[in-house]
Structures are given as C-alpha cells and as structure tokens.
Amino acid sequence: MEKTRRRDLVRDYKEIKSRPGVYSLTCVATGETWVGSSRAIDTQVNNTMFSLRHGSHRNRALQDAWTTHGEAGVVYAIVEALDDEEMTGIGRDTWLKERLRHWAAALDAKPAIA
C-alpha cells in the first residue's frame, strides 16, 4: 500500500466518531440474554466476537453458550445508542450506567461482562 493511501486511511479512522450505547447477546437455543455497555458501540461487536471465537470471553456462561451453540446460536444486537455529541464524558458514563440497568431489567438479562 502506498504511503499516501495508508496515511489517508489512518486519518479517516481517527476521525470516526464513537458513540456510546448498550448491546445485547442472546442465545437462540436457550433464550438467555446478556447485556453490556460500551463507549464505542459500533465497534464493540468486533471485540466481543473476537473474544468469543477464541474462547477467551470473561463471562463463562456466555462463552459456554457460544461454545455449545456456535456463532449462529448467539445473536449480537445494539439495543440503544446515544447520538448526542454535546454530552460530556461524565454525562455519557452516567447515561450508560442508567441505560444498562434499564435494559438489563427490561430484557431480564445478565451482565455480559462478569
């Protein structure tokens, strides 16, 4: 890859705005659901799926569901994302905690990160 192309790709990557949000993982076979929050919800799926594929996810029950039922047996979904760019860091963290509690109760879910 030529230097200017690489530099442009790096610049474009750095300019991507991350948005916080809440995600869920549901085992299709058992109906078990786990929820988690992330400061970068759009890229969280990569991190989560990588750790599950390699058998290194911190939540043993979630990892066991993945191992038993496979990738097609566990569905990842973004349940809510914040698009407010004006919110401060503390406000975002507070929002994430509140929304995580809300979705855990609404979905009768367990924490994705144990």
Rank of each mutant, 00 (worst) to 15 (best):
H57K: 04
M49K: 12
D42Q: 15
R5Y: 09
R11S: 03
A40Q: 13
L25M: 12
A105Y: 02
G73P: 11
V45Q: 15
R53L: 05
T30A: 06
A61T: 06
A77P: 03
D83P: 07
T67L: 03
Y23C: 02
M49Q: 14
Y13S: 13
G91M: 02
D83I: 12
R7D: 06
T43C: 10
S56M: 13
K14A: 14
A81M: 15
A65Y: 03
A61V: 12
H102A: 08
M1H: 11
A40D: 14
A106Q: 10
S37L: 13
L100I: 00
L25T: 04
M49V: 08
T94D: 10
A109V: 00
M87P: 07
G55E: 13
Y23L: 05
E2M: 07
T67M: 06
F50H: 15
E71Q: 13
D108F: 06
W103K: 05
P111Y: 03
A72Q: 13
L107W: 02
R92P: 04
K17F: 12
W103D: 04
L62E: 09
M1V: 08
R99M: 00
T94K: 14
I41V: 12
I90H: 07
A81T: 13
M49E: 10
K17P: 10
V74H: 06
A104V: 10
T94M: 15
D108L: 00
K3C: 05
I41G: 03
W66D: 01
T88Y: 01
R6W: 09
V35P: 05
V35K: 09
D108R: 11
Q63T: 02
V22D: 01
T88L: 06
G31L: 05
P20R: 04
G89F: 06
G21S: 01
L100W: 11
Y23R: 02
L62I: 05
R5I: 10
M49D: 03
S38H: 10
Y13T: 03
D12T: 08
L52R: 01
L25K: 10
K110P: 01
L9Q: 02
A61M: 04
T68Y: 02
E80G: 03
R5H: 13
A77N: 12
R7N: 11
V22Y: 00
T33C: 12
I90C: 05
A114E: 11
R7M: 01
S37W: 06
R7A: 11
R7F: 05
F50V: 15
G36Y: 07
L100G: 11
L62C: 11
V35G: 01
N47D: 15
